[in-house]
Design a protein around this nucleic acid. Structure first.
Lengths: 340, 340
DNA sequence: CTGAAAGCGCTTACAG
DNA sequence: CTGAAAGCGCTTACAG
């Protein structure tokens, strides 16, 4: 009853050709006469033959699989990039082997080793800083790699992303231009997150250049949850009631921050300006709509797909560095600093 | 310079044992004497040996890989389930091969074939309705399968989820209890989405049982975007100005709907009640906070991991049907029907 | 354009 | 507890 899965050999036998010919018919049809192709295709259809990926990978040293490691899947900016990365590679009959590193370099190293061992033809990661062993391992496997979400003209590896320092500068400048002098920052955890760290440094630098200060008690670091955003507003304003602008590490924190401000009876932006980061889809529809910086998630996913597929196709491993724009989007949560 | 990747054979040679022993040392260490283990581990370390997944898969007929197909990655309820599914299987050294079907049965079929061909030890899908060929293909490969997001006590395949008809009932009942009589519905696209369809039928049934009607011009079907939520409110209210409650297919649509209501100068919930579905993280922090039904994404992901790993471990393929609660969460967007 | 044959790097009865 | 050997299902020079 339960038939065994047919193999290439079975197809060859039924079509009365060699396995080599069947293999060619599958992979390079134009190397095979049309009549023979038809015979083979009939046999394949007939037997319900499906090639075995493991055997194919072992013999050809290619897996038709790309590895991708994001910090967490459960964040719309990463899942959006994944979606478009996926769409891009599906056409070329590639599939994603997915892992997350949970913002830990050690976990990431293990995941990379696991992916490499399982067999991948290319690797996509997020951020510039990775465990040194990762780079060694990659070198060994000689596969194309690209780091998303960062842009560094000097980087040794390919990258597709934007300049987070510049992004931090932009936000701070926007608020300074509005007359704010006293800032609060609700940042994501900066350790092991070079993007969050550079954004922070960008805005700190801009604030200090403008002649203001950013003391330690004006800064909170926390994981990206709405609840943390809300709580942190209280933490900051309890200590420093005259903060007039709070810069959040991402939109989720900003949504929480608005909630926290409302709990304190503060009006946004009249009493307190708030900024986000990423520009998630719902932002323009919230009341008040949130000022933010747009993260080009979609384009990063698409371009990563293009880049890796191109390298595989050309059997090259060229370093490319693609800078994308991350523009400031001014909405309703930022306004002139209140007069005291 | 560029050394070849070491193989099991190299390890065996260096450790002066057979490849069989090295293989055992890797997979079933207690079948090997401790002293020999040490010799082998030293050689592995020394050579930087990493097993080849393809060869291993071909020889053992196991890939340590699970396939998962979601409608779209770019929706937090699915990405959240993925995150926990992933976490659950990582411990067992499994990795996810990820695909999305973009809400199309044909695409899903192709993806399933691709995953099976690539080699997976188990498969996780969303919803009950799949292309018939999918079930045939799965049968052939004899791997455990589980459908998430649905619960059907009669289903032929394992499922982990909740009853969408009941969920639809609950929402409608809540609004009816509040005195609403005239309803609008902004549903997701129901074709190829059994969850959306059953939710719709659940609420339709409850509304009609209560003696009210739900005409066609009280219903809009659209993709799950904030913008569609906002537009659809206008579509519905332009035609039927006396609708007092709008039931949305998910939270994203509901956020858009609130925006649309505000554009019309309507107060939520005083003039118009609005409900969502899924209970995404930010909901309680929005103003007004949104009444919704909680989708147990996290638990579905976790339980799917447990189920599949258990089946693989036991080499069984038992059908399990796990019902999870999807409770109504009443917040600020629903209130008594306005007096006319 | 096609075939015979080696080989990809493992695992696993089988025998001892 | 260990080894010799077959075999997993393909691909790919090589030869014709």
């Amino acid at each position: 009853m339960q038939k065994k899965k047919p193999t290439l050999q079975d197809v060859a036998t039924q079509a009365k050709v060699s396995t080599a010919t069947v293999s060619r018919c599958l992979n390079n049809p134009d190397m095979v006469r049309v009549e023979v192709q038809e015979k083979i295709n009939r046999a394949i259809e007939n037997l319900g033959y499906v090639p075995d990926g493991a055997a194919r990978a072992l013999a050809s040293r290619r897996t038709q699989t790309l590895g991708v490691i994001v910090p967490t899947i459960d964040n719309s900016i990463f899942s959006k990039a994944l979606q478009y990365l996926q769409n891009g590679i599906t056409k070329a009959n590639y599939t994603l082997l997915l892992a997350n590193n949970d913002f830990s370099q050690e976990v990431e190293l293990r995941e990379v080793q696991s992916l490499l061992s399982r067999g991948i033809d290319g690797l996509v990661m997020v951020g510039a800083k990775h465990h040194p062993e990762i780079y060694k391992a990659i070198k060994r496997y000689q596969i194309p790699v690209v780091n998303l979400w960062i842009y560094d003209p000097e980087s040794e590896y390919s990258c597709i992303g934007f300049d987070h320092i510049k992004a931090g500068n932009q936000i701070a400048k926007h608020l300074i231009d509005l007359g704010h002098k006293n800032f609060g920052v609700i940042s994501g955890i900066r350790e092991n997150n070079d993007r969050a760290d550079e954004r922070f440094r960008g805005l700190e630098q801009q604030i200090e250049n403008a002649g203001f200060t950013l003391d330690e008690d004006h800064i909170v670091e926390c994981h990206y949850t709405v609840e943390n955003g809300s709580k942190s507003v209280h933490t900051l304003l309890d200590k420093n009631p005259d903060i007039t602008a709070i810069i959040c590490g991402n939109d989720i924190l900003a949504i929480g921050a608005i909630h926290g401000a409302q709990e304190r009876g503060l009006k946004v932006p009249e009493d307190l300006s708030i900024t986000g980061f990423d520009n998630i889809e719902i932002l323009p529809f919230l009341k008040p709509s949130i000022t933010t910086i747009n993260s080009p998630s979609r384009r990063m996913g698409e371009k990563a797909a293009d880049y890796i597929l191109q390298q595989i196709k050309d059997k090259t491993n060229n370093v490319e560095r693609i800078e994308l724009e991350a523009e400031l989007i001014v909405r309703e949560t930022t306004g002139p600093a209140p007069q005291i």
